[in-house]
Amino acid sequence: MRQVIIIGSGPAGYTAAIYAARAGLAPLVIASSVEAGGELMNTTDVENYPGFPEGVQGPDLMMSFEAQAERFGAEILLDDVTSVELEGPVKKVTLGSGEVVEALAVIVATGSAYRKLGLADEERLTGRGVSWCATCDGFFFKEKTIAVVGGGDSAMEEATFLTRFADKVYVIYRGDTLRASLTMQQRAFDNEKIEFIWNSQVTAINGEESVTGITVHNSATGEDSTLEVQGLFIAIGSDPRTALVSGQIDLSDDGTIAVEGRTSKTSLTGVFAAGDVTDPTYRQAVTAAGTGCVAALDAEHYLATLPAETIAQTQGPAAPEEKELVTS
């Protein structure tokens, strides 16, 4: 049995791991088999994470988080959690491998999942022109015409990034004022390859073998029009990933895990939550990291209230030896 298990490996999960490891809790981080490092692994330039005046590449940032957590004795497992039993004093976490690991405390930092448009042909044409990852797939759209749906920072970043490859990038947004930060907006407005289509929603994706176009409905004029595009990148936000824990801990009306005030305490004793899965509003790497820290401190305080004989049943050294920092 562990003192604490952390589910998730984005900025919240790894920050929780750094603090928990430094507190001598020898945390086990279940980092996911194919999404370790979280959303920033598919991001290029991160320009707003403090401490990096020149910016930093998303994957580099997350590998630094990971190295820092490991340095203090966090154990990182590249596996997925398939189910959890969070009630009672001993929490059970089942892994993709079938193994069940137990802990006295669990920190849920499962982040969020990309939102879909909900159109009939979206699934069928995924990988045939429909994409959620500009950094993965932009390369295949050299000299092509692309549409990006969305008006937030990630939509602006994707549109700007895609102009490296595409001849033309439409940004389709349902409103007439973007949600993106001013810097990101301005960068997109200044880019000659980007054309904005306001007050509009994608209502159909056309194409048999691959995407050939989209149908767009303008809510201001009531008109439908067709755009010839070979690619459609969807960046309309994300929803908190709560499937694992819903039914066991309370969720807020907005779908995030409910936490008590500015703490990370969920409705179940010994279960803490941090990062985007708790955050309907800010959803930044730095806010996620901040709440990851909160969760580790809350878990540490909780574990300190447990009887010494309970803690004695857990594995992991009380004060782990500091490892050499491996930099790549």
């Binding site: 088999s33 194919v34 999404e35 598919n42 994957p59 990852c133 950094t135 993965c136 390369f139």
Partner: peptide, 14 residues
């Protein structure tokens, strides 16, 4: 796959 594709690197070992 490609070097610059994070998900590709993740699925490679699997």
């Amino acid at each position: 796959w490609a070097e610059w594709c994070g998900p590709c690197r993740a699925v490679g070992p699997i």
